[in-house]
Amino acid sequence: MNAPPVTVSLVQIFLTFCGIGAGSFGGGISGLIHREIVHKKKWLSDHEMLAGIALSQIVPGANVTNTCVFVGQRLRGVPGATMALGGLLSVPFVATVLVYLAWDWISSVPLMPSVVDGVAAAAVGLNLRLGVVGAQRSFPKIVPILVTIVTFVAVGVLNWPIIPVMAVMAPLSIAAAWPRKSAHA
C-alpha cells in the first residue's frame, strides 16, 4: 500500500469535515469536498478524488458519507474514515433537529424560500466546477470525453438507473485507459 501524499492528523480530518458538513446545503456536497480536500488542502489529487466519487456511487449508502469515508480511509485508514464520517455528520445532526424544532417559525419567515433556493443554486455551482475539472482532465483524449457525455446523457437526461449504466461505461472507460504492453512508436 502506498502512503498517502501528505500526513494529516485525525483532528485535522475531523475539523475539516465538520466544516464541510456545516456548509453542505442543497445536495451540492461533492463539489465542496473536492474544493476543500483537493484544491485547498491538496490532500488528494483530482484523479484520486474523482475515482473516489465514482466508487462512492457504486457502494450502497449516501454518496456523501461514502466519499468522506473514502477520503478519510485514504489519509489515515479506518480511524481517518471514522473521523471524517463523525465530522461530517456532527454539525448537521444538531442543526437538523434544531431546524425541525424551529420549523414553524422558519417556514413563516418571508423570503426564506429564496434564501434556500439561492444557497442550493450556489452549492450546485461548486459541483459544476468539479464536473468541469473532471472533464478538462480528459482533453484532448476523445474516449474519456465521450464517456463523460454518454454517462451524463444516460443518467442525467434519460434518467436511466445508475448501476447498469456504470456496469457498461466503467469497463469501457477502464479498457481505454489500460496500459498498452507494446508501447507505440
Binding site: 442543497g26 445536495g27 451540492g28 461533492s30 463539489g31 483530482d46 484523479h47 484520486e48 474523482l50 475515482a51 466519487i53 465514482a54 466508487l55 456511487q57 442550493a120 450546485v124 459541483n127 459544476l128 468539479l130 464536473g131 473532471g134 472533464a135 482532465r137 480528459s138 474519456p144 470525453i145 464517456v147 463523460t148 457525455i149 454518454v150 454517462t151 451524463f152 444516460a154 443518467v155 442525467g156 437526461v157 445508475i162 456504470m166 461505461m169 466503467a170 472507460s173 477502464i174 479498457a175 481505454a176 485507459a177 489500460w178 496500459p179
Partner: peptide, 24 residues
C-alpha cells in the same frame, strides 16, 4: 491496473456529477 481503473473511472464520475446537477 489500479492506475487504469482510476484513470477510467474519472470521466465516468465527471458524467455522474453533471447528471447529479441536472437531478438536483
Amino acid at each position: 491496473w489500479h492506475k487504469a481503473v482510476e484513470e477510467g473511472l474519472a470521466p465516468v464520475a465527471a458524467g455522474l456529477v453533471f447528471a447529479g446537477i441536472l437531478a438536483i
